[in-house]
């Protein structure tokens, strides 16, 4: 038993703000694991994921869900996918490797790399169009779409997880700047 206790902390301390028509809140319960697929191994890995979790590799910029709905896969790069799923321990890498049962893939935990902020509500797109260069028209950026871009000079992943709900991921150290950017948008628009 160690004399010292280490505790965890989310990037933004669980920030949550409600505005008229928009809610801005930190997502604190999700893990993110990168799964790299070596050349020539993609089919083998997809077969294993499919068998173990009912997952298929999504098209670029899209996502798929596991059979039980617990894991979402994002495809932002050709040779890798990202598993986004509700998991709060610090061993997501091992956990997902075990669940996928696809040993020829390389797994890298990214859960602590990102600050995740959800912007939701009927005015969410009006807020986001002030910072997001991606076309968020609902018919273009359909439910489950995911994209990596740059907002306010900050590299950002945007994922649409509901009709009027978007999750923004920025590198953890930028979290405060991104939250501020969203709040300024709210101030400027609402």
């Amino acid at each position: 038993m160690s004399d010292y206790t280490i505790v965890k902390e989310s990037p933004l301390g669980g920030a949550e703000h409600e505005f008229d028509g928009v809610t801005v809140s930190e997502v604190v319960d999700q893990s993110l694991v990168m799964i790299a697929m070596p050349n020539g191994k993609a089919e083998e890995i997809e077969a294993a994921m499919s068998k173990s979790c009912g997952l298929s590799v999504p098209a670029m910029g899209q996502s798929t869900q596991s059979a039980d709905g617990s894991i979402t896969l994002w495809r932002l790069q050709k040779n890798q996918v990202l598993a986004y799923y509700a998991y709060e321990s610090d061993d997501a890498e091992a956990n997902i490797a075990e669940r996928f049962n696809a040993p020829s893939a390389y797994y890298t935990d990214q859960s602590d790399t990102w600050a995740m902020i959800r912007v939701s509500g009927e005015r969410s797109r009006d807020i986001l169009e002030r910072i997001c260069p991606i076309d968020l028209d609902p018919s273009v950026f359909t439910l489950g779409s995911v994209s990596r871009t740059i907002m306010e000079h900050i590299g950002t992943i945007i994922y649409r997880d509901g009709d009027d709900s978007y999750v923004l991921l920025t590198m953890r150290s930028f979290g405060r700047s991104m939250l501020h950017a969203i709040e300024v948008s709210v101030e400027n628009v609402l």
């Binding site: 670029m60 932002l76 790069q77 050709k78 990596r148 871009t149 740059i150 590299g155």
Partner: peptide, 14 residues
């Protein structure tokens, strides 16, 4: 017509 290299740094890193 110039063939040139661009890096998608804020995208898929290709």
């Amino acid at each position: 017509d110039n063939r040139e290299l661009w890096y998608h740094e804020q995208g898929d890193q290709s």
